[in-house]
Each structure stands twice: as C-alpha cells, then as structure tokens.
Simulated assay, not measured.
Amino acid sequence: MQVLKAYAKINLSLDVIGKRNDGYHLLRMIMQTIDLYDVLKICRTESGIHITCNKSYVPCDNRNLAYRAAKLFMNKYGIRSGVNINIVKNIPVAAGLAGGSADAAAVLKAMRNMYLPGVHDGELARLGLNIGTDIPYCIIGGTALCEGIGEIVTPLKPFRDHILILVKPPFGVSTKEVYEDLNISKIIKHPNTGLIINAIRKDRLGVVSENMKNVLENVTLKKHFVLKQIKDQLIGFGALGTLMSGSGPSIFAFFDDMLKAQECYDKMKVKYKETFITRTI
C-alpha cells in the first residue's frame, strides 16, 4: 500500500496575460505549497477503480480527479489490474486550493511507484495536464512560477515556514465561471511578478505580502462581498497582507507573529468553520 499526503496550494500571485484560441487563459502565477493536506491510501486490486472518501459530498466515480488520474495512468501504460483509493479529505473543495488536483497528482505518483518507478515527474506532469491544469504544479510542488495554462512549471527558491491563516467561507466557486466572467481588457493593475520572485529569493515576507496580487479578485470579490470583509478582518488582526487563492473563495493572510496568528485563528474560527492556521512548506 502507498500512503501519500496531497498538499494544498495557494497563489502568491495570479496574472492573466492572454487567451488561447481554444478558450484557455494564459497565466503567469506564483504557486506555493502549504501544510494542509489530504491523505490517500492506495493499493492494488484485481480490477477496476474503487474510491472511498470520509466526506459524503465528494464524488467517488469518474467525476473525481483521483479516479480520472488512475484511469489515465492505466490507459497510458497498459495496466490491467485495478486500484483501491481511500481519500481522507481535509482540504476544502471548490476553494481555489487545488485539492482535487493534489489528490490526482498523489494518485499518479502512487501508481508510478507501484508499477513503473522509472517514470519521472516531468512525464507524470505532462500526463496529468490532460485532466487538470493545476496537476503539473501539484506533481512538482514547493514554490514555483507557473506559466502557459499551468503546464510550464519553474521551481523557485523555497519560501518555507511562513505562518498563514486560511479562511474558506461556506460556499464554493466555479473556476470555469470566474474565467468566463473575466474581461482581460479591463484588468488595470497586474502583479509585479518579478518583484515578488526577487522578494522570495531574499525571503522577505513583508515585501511578498505587500505585493501579492490576484487579478481574479476582480471577478470573485464583486460577486461575494463577504470576501472583502474577510480580508479586512484579517488585516485588522495584524496580517501583513491578504490574497484570494486561485479563483476563490479561500482567502489567506501572512503573519510574522504566531501569537497574533493564533488570536486571529481563534476569532475567525468562530465565524468560519473552515479556518486553518498553517504554514508554507
């Protein structure tokens, strides 16, 4: 049996710089792994793909990216036996944290380890792109610049051990709908990606926090006013900076003081059940 942790991600920046003819948006974003994860237990079985999950609202059929990842791997490499996948879900769903993609990446890695240990991460990333644009990053992990539609992943100097509070309000957001509602020509302020990368290189949390930018906030924050309220509340508790992750609705904030972070967590947890205190890894 393979037991893997599937880690969530946040965006330290997210910029949309164009659109392809097929409708996919061209992105330039800085992704960061955080210490919030699902646990997957994966083992061989005689035939089929069988998924169980601790959350009743998570589909256990071909709607689940973990299922599709297993099927993709089997079809690609001619695997005739089956697989059992148990998912202990801790990452909020439809949250902008790549929880489904992280699970799919873990399945691809586990099946590689079980069947074809010679397959390298780059090949898995290319394979995973067929079912999800966040999967290549989730295969690589860490701190990375992601470009194209997400398939060009350039590792950056690790931005580890920075405390953050993560708040997921009690609703989900459709990534597809957010991108459909985004008008690229109306984006006035883009992230200064180069400045953020340089600050990461020097491990300057304050500079990163002050310059984080996600152009998808232009869409999601207008639809859900509570997200702006959450951001303001986090700043009120002493956060260095806040940002929406991905297409939302999760909001995170960096802190340079654990006592302030703990106080913020205690207060926000009363209002929002899915509030987490964690750190970058």
Rank of each mutant, 00 (worst) to 15 (best):
N183T: 13
I184D: 09
K168V: 07
V207N: 10
I184W: 04
V215R: 02
G118P: 08
K222R: 14
L156E: 03
Q233A: 15
L234D: 04
E147Y: 01
P169A: 05
T242H: 06
M212P: 10
I152S: 04
H224W: 05
D134E: 01
K213M: 15
V208A: 05
L216T: 03
D121K: 07
L156G: 04
I163M: 07
A239D: 02
K228C: 12
D203R: 12
K213R: 15
V226H: 00
N211G: 02
K189G: 10
P158T: 06
G241Q: 03
Q233S: 15
K222A: 13
E180L: 12
P170S: 11
L145S: 03
N198D: 15
A199C: 07
K223P: 00
K189S: 14
I196D: 05
G132K: 00
E210N: 13
C146G: 00
N218M: 14
G241N: 08
F171E: 12
D181S: 14
H190G: 11
V226Q: 11
Q229P: 00
N192G: 07
G150K: 09
I188R: 14
L164E: 00
E180I: 11
K168G: 07
L243Q: 06
L182A: 11
A125W: 02
L129N: 01
L243S: 13
D203V: 10
I235Y: 10
I149M: 00
V226R: 13
G128W: 07
G238M: 11
E217G: 05
L227S: 03
T133N: 11
L145N: 06
D203C: 08
K202E: 15
L205C: 00
C146F: 04
I135M: 01
P169G: 03
L166C: 07
T154P: 09
K176H: 12
N183F: 09
T220G: 10
L227W: 01
R126M: 13
D181Q: 14
F159C: 02
T154L: 11
I187E: 05
N192L: 07
I235M: 15
V173N: 03
N214R: 00
N192E: 15
M212Y: 09
T175R: 08
K228G: 12
F159E: 08
N183A: 13
L240Q: 05
N214V: 02
L243C: 13
N214L: 07
F171W: 11
S185M: 12
G194Q: 14
I196K: 09
P191M: 06
D161C: 01
D161V: 02
T242W: 02
G238C: 05
I152D: 11
F237N: 10
K222E: 13
V153H: 00
L243W: 06
D121S: 14
K176P: 05
V119F: 10
G241L: 03
K228M: 13
I196H: 04
F225I: 15
G132I: 04
T220C: 12
E123S: 09
K186H: 15
G206M: 04
L240A: 09
I184C: 10
L182R: 04
H190I: 01
E210V: 10
K168W: 03
G118L: 04
F237W: 11
M212V: 10
P158R: 08
G238A: 08
I230Q: 04
K186E: 14
S209Y: 00
L227P: 03
